[in-house]
């Protein structure tokens, strides 16, 4: 890569790249700016970019409406809970497939992948009816179950691709060193797999947090996570833009930060290891 690049060219490319990046990011930036405006400023034409009356009252308002906290809690509990359960099921399975593969391992992996391809809308009716009959509609448990199962294939796949990169030799070395299976898992595999486990966890929280088909269809109020809560802003037209922006900013900020941390792992996670 030791190629000489002229300064002028670099400057042009840099400017172009920053411009493109800025345009792509702009809607989010605009939303964040709007969240600090008064409702009047938010609605004004021509729009004010920076020189408006900065206020945090929208955040206060959003915060005061006690249901915001409730929905944020719902998001945290459903995204976090579904992820933890999925990890608990997926880690042993991925370990088995990576380190004790059988002739059918590949088929099982591909079959798991294919369950993810089933369009949710295809099973909307039965899931809705089962949930209705078992009283799971608009419950956190119900959402956790559906989010957990929906993301399980991705979790297993991601963990599998990470585990597979751990050299088998090292686990065998531990076995030769007299470690039992439990000790091998605890002292050798887990510390080595930790980065992979962490990024799988992160990506899965993001996916669950942003899931907006099941959450919209299976929750209405008590268990509604932020996706559903934000959707409720679509009905009263206009005039709540600043508050909508503030609520939206709060809803995406944590995940945006988590996402930025996990972006390097995103590609392989979402392409099932087909692109690294």
């Amino acid at each position: 890569m030791a190629r000489k690049v002229t300064g002028a060219k670099t400057a042009i490319w840099t400017a172009a790249a920053w411009l493109v990046g800025f345009i792509i990011f702009f809607p989010i930036l605009w939303m964040m700016l709007t969240s600090f405006k008064t409702e009047l400023d938010a609605f004004s034409t021509p729009p004010s970019f920076l020189f408006f009356h900065w206020t945090t009252e929208n955040y206060a308002t959003v915060q005061e409406r006690s249901d915001y906290t409730l929905h944020a809690m719902n998001s945290i509990i459903t995204a976090g809970g579904s992820t933890l359960i999925a990890m608990a099921i997926a880690i042993p399975a991925a370990w088995a497939m990576a380190f004790a593969p059988t002739k059918r391992t590949k088929d099982i992996l591909l079959w798991m992948l294919s369950t993810k391809m089933m369009p949710a809308v295809g099973v909307l009716v039965p899931i809705y009816l089962i949930y209705r009959d078992f009283g799971l509609l608009d419950t956190r448990i119900g959402l956790i179950v559906v989010l957990c199962l929906g993301n399980l294939p991705i979790v297993i796949w991601m963990l599998f691709t990470y585990f597979k990169e751990i050299p088998k030799d090292i686990l065998e070395a531990a076995r030769m060193d007299g470690a039992t299976i439990t000790k091998e898992l605890l002292f050798v595999l887990t510390p080595m797999a930790l980065p992979g486990i962490a990024s799988t966890l992160l990506l899965n929280v993001i996916l669950a947090w942003n899931e907006a088909f099941w959450t919209l269809n299976l929750s209405t109020s008590a268990a509604a996570p932020l996706t559903t809560f934000i959707a409720s802003y679509s009905s009263p037209e206009g005039l709540f833009w600043a508050k909508l922006s503030a609520a939206s900013t709060l809803a995406i900020a944590p995940i945006l930060i988590l996402g930025w941390f996990s972006q390097k792992q995103l590609v392989r996670g979402l392409t099932f290891g087909a692109v690294k």
Binding site: W13, A17, P27, A231, S245, I255
Partner: peptide, 28 residues
Amino acid sequence: MPIYGRNIVRLMVIAPFFVMPTVSALVW
């Protein structure tokens, strides 16, 4: 390309992917 601040550009480009669908739809 060899550009300055690639990591920051990368962050800006990737950001929309992390926005929940209901938020991006309403903001737009």
